[in-house]
Simulated assay, not measured.
Amino acid sequence: MPENFVAEIKQDARKQMVDLLNANLSNAIALTLAVKQAHWNLKGRGFIGVHQLLDDVAARSREAADMIAERAVMLGGFADGTLETVSKAATMEAYPKDISDIEKHIEALKQRFMFVGGELRKAIDVADKAGDADTADLFTEVSRAVDKDAWFIGANA
């Protein structure tokens, strides 16, 4: 592993956290792309409001992915957010490519946000058990944002 900027975390825990961060990075990137897929293709009543909301949500998702990636590097690892990695490592269900109905997009996004939120909460527990309170805190911050965006999106149903 490259240089570590977080000295108090043991090497094996750092490696575990880097792997955990990269797994969640893949889901964060996949979620961002799902939001943009919906943003580009949705049609129906309330279009402009949801369309604009999804731009804001995508920006927050990109910011979350950035925080996750930077933490992996701080711990002495590499952030792995390449297309090839994300397409293989993301555990979120693939987003449908052939829907335009706004209600179907809202439901599809809500399901994926709930899934990613659940994965983040699992990551919080793993980071806590590994003794990495800062990574647990980062996952907590991201999970709060994911939950809030799920609520914003779902409120349009």
Rank of each mutant, 00 (worst) to 15 (best):
N24F: 02
N27D: 15
N27C: 02
N27Q: 05
N27G: 01
I29D: 09
I29S: 11
T32A: 12
T32W: 12
T32C: 12
L33Y: 07
L33C: 07
L33R: 05
A34I: 08
V35F: 04
V35G: 05
V35K: 12
K36L: 01
K36G: 01
A38R: 01
A38S: 15
W40G: 05
W40E: 05
N41Y: 01
N41M: 07
N41L: 07
L42R: 12
K43P: 04
R45Y: 12
R45S: 11
F47Q: 04
I48N: 13
V50H: 03
V50Q: 08
V50M: 10
V50R: 03
V50F: 10
H51I: 00
Q52Y: 04
L53S: 08
L53F: 03
L53M: 15
L53I: 09
L54T: 02
L54E: 05
D56A: 15
D56Q: 14
V57E: 08
A59K: 10
R60N: 06
R60M: 10
S61N: 10
R62G: 11
R62P: 00
R62H: 14
R62T: 12
R62I: 05
E63T: 09
E63M: 04
A64N: 13
D66H: 08
M67C: 09
M67A: 15
M67R: 15
I68N: 12
I68W: 02
R71I: 11
A72Q: 05
A72E: 04
V73P: 06
L75P: 11
L75D: 13
L75E: 04
G76P: 08
G76L: 07
G77C: 09
F78A: 12
F78N: 09
F78S: 13
D80N: 09
G81C: 04
T82Y: 00
T82L: 03
L83Q: 11
L83V: 12
E84Q: 10
E84S: 13
T85E: 06
V86C: 03
S87N: 05
S87A: 13
A89G: 00
A89E: 10
A90R: 05
A90Q: 06
A90L: 06
T91W: 00
T91G: 10
T91E: 13
T91M: 03
M92N: 04
E93P: 01
E93K: 14
